[in-house]
Design a binder for these strands. Structure first.
Length: 514
RNA sequence: CGGAGCGUGGCGCAGCCUGGUAGCGCACUUGCUUUGGGAGCAAGGGGUCGCCGGUUCGAAUCCGGCCGCUCCGACCA
């Protein structure tokens, strides 16, 4: 039994603190001097880059292209769509001045007031609407399928690293279509992309479904979401896809001449995921020892830790470790790494250049045990431990981060294919483990009393529910839980709403949420 | 934005009540011994005590204001 990490509090003792400790120990992020903002450190940003790489490929595969729209938006744009203003007005950062000057005390203060205030984008539907109105003339111009990778700002009252920060990174897809049906298909297609991405890449199982009226995006006809369960059994919305109907097209006059020679408004969609996914990744998989990364996400797939006493052993073990790195990554990659990292204490060998994944050989001074903790806390999926005894037996020890297992292998078995196989196996098992956890913490209830009892224990609570904002408000008041999603997967038939007893054909998932 | 707690070398804390010129553990540097799950000894380096103001001969300590972080609530994709 491994001793507890000394810089990380246990999940059982203090879950929110554990989350912050893991981020700190893995050096993922730090606080900025400005309230609510965070610095994403290299180890954290590498996770975002991995997410970007994989998702961007999926967007391209579904026919989308990238563009960049600017940070600043005229305030007047926000006013055009009634629901949209209402939803975002309170959390906008507003730019009112250009340039600075010194005041009497010598401190800088804003100088020239702008003729029209600008908001820092909280999202870009309005700007896309404005541009689409100019770019779209005919049905031949449709569909328009643009995505952008950007930062946005929402002046949140309460922030949490990765989960809700004032500024965050995300992607926002904005599409325009000829028909309502095409827009609906696009909305669901992208939700599907998010769902398979979350499960295949992040190993985070999600429930796909529709949001209720009270939970939908301001300005949308319908909002769909993927919802994940964290280890404290709370729900986390991991991605959203909105069918905007003709709301923004009307507000920004996005019209086209149809096949029937009639001028009509486009049907638009928008969809996004953010750096919140990194929070999901942390809370779905990590343990009391620190971060655990699924192999596909991990920038460092494996760390080789040499163990030796004497100089003689050191020489022998390090040479052996190099051979092992070569076996795992290929001789050419090892040679390239040796050249680049010559003289360094960390030898970094790529296993896959396009995914930017690598194996690291840790030749730093110091005790092997400390290196174990070092890589363990940073979530590296595999550690290969090599001591003199292993060299003599032509073997190595493989420690698997996610389940703590220790297995013995012959050196001859190490190869790029072997490593990939290990990675795929762990990737699959991490998804299974997370899914099992979710299933074990999801209950179906038949009455409001049962629901209250279940929510008190935590987890997803599934039940027949007739959508009604007032009833949702009452449930939230009494239990703090909200409808997370009305899942696509329904049992069929009808039942009685657990709160009102009214007939309904839908079951909803209730949970406490982030 | 309301309530509570906290803010002292990189991290975790003591000192504050009862003012007297800053300390402990870890980490860091150097050397030696060590190295299969958080080693030992020795010698070092590092802090305008969150910020601003007040009281005082003297403030980490007392008083006022502000800022930040965490938790709870409200708000919110």
């Amino acid at each position: 039994m491994a001793p507890m990490a000394k810089n990380i509090v246990s999940r059982a003792q203090d879950y929110p603190q554990w989350y912050l400790d893991v981020i700190k120990a893995a050096e993922l992020a730090d606080y900025s001097p400005v309230r609510g903002c965070m610095v994403i450190r290299p180890a954290g940003y590498a996770l975002w880059e991995a997410i970007q790489r994989d998702l961007d490929r999926r967007f391209k595969e579904t026919g989308h292209v990238n563009a960049y729209f600017p940070l600043l938006i005229p305030v007047s744009f926000l006013e055009r769509e009634a629901q949209h203003v209402e939803g975002f007005a309170m959390e906008c950062a507003v730019v009112t001045h250009s340039s600075l000057e010194k005041d009497e005390t010598g401190h800088l203060k804003p100088r020239s007031e702008l003729p029209e205030p600008l908001v820092i984008r909280p999202t870009s539907e309005t700007l896309f609407g404005h541009m689409y109105a100019q770019w779209i003339q005919s049905y031949r111009d449709l569909p328009v399928l643009i995505n952008q990778w950007a930062n946005v700002m929402r002046w949140e009252m309460r922030t949490r690293l990765f989960l809700r920060t004032a500024e965050f990174l995300w992607q926002e897809g904005h599409t325009a279509h000829e028909t309502a049906q095409e827009a609906q298909e696009e909305t669901l297609r992208m939700l599907g992309v998010y769902a398979s991405f979350a499960e295949d890449f992040l190993a985070v199982p999600v429930v796909q479904g529709r949001k209720t009226e009270s939970e939908k995006f301001p300005g949308a006809d319908t909002t769909y979401a993927i919802e994940a369960m964290m280890q404290d059994r709370k729900a986390l919305q991991a991605g959203t896809s909105h069918n905007l109907g003709q709301n923004f097209a009307r507000a920004f006059d996005v019209k086209f001449l149809g096949r029937d020679n009639q001028l009509q408004h486009c049907w638009t969609t928008s969809w996004g995921v953010s750096t919140r996914l990194i929070g999901a990744l942390i809370m779905a998989h990590s343990d009391d020892e620190g971060l655990i990364l699924p192999p596909r996400v991990a920038p460092t797939l494996a760390a080789i830790v040499p163990i030796f006493k004497t100089d003689e052993e050191k020489e022998k073990v390090l040479a052996y470790c190099r051979e092992l790195a070569g076996a795992l990554c290929g001789a050419e990659r090892l040679a390239a790494a040796e050249k680049r990292d010559a003289g360094r204490e960390l030898l970094t060998v790529f296993t896959d250049e396009s995914a930017c994944q690598r194996v690291v050989l840790d030749m730093r001074e110091g005790r092997a045990v400390e290196k174990h903790y070092h890589w363990e806390q940073r979530g590296v999926p595999f550690r290969l431990e090599v001591g003199p005894r292993d060299v003599d037996k032509s073997a190595f020890v493989l420690k698997t981060r996610f389940d703590g297992t220790k297995t013995f292998h012959e050196k001859g078995s190490a190869s790029p294919d072997w490593l990939r196989e290990q990675a795929n196996l762990v990737q699959t098992r991490m998804l299974e483990r997370a899914r099992t956890f979710r299933e074990e913490n999801t209950v179906v209830v038949e009455s409001y009393d049962e629901m209250k009892a279940a929510l008190a224990k935590g987890g997803f609570v599934r039940c027949w529910f007739r959508e009604d904002p007032e009833v949702e408000a009452r449930i939230k008041e009494e239990t703090k839980a909200t409808v997370r999603v009305i899942p696509f997967q329904q049992p069929g038939g009808t039942g009685k709403c657990v709160v009102t007893g009214r007939e309904t054909s839908e079951q909803a998932i209730f949970a406490l949420a982030y």
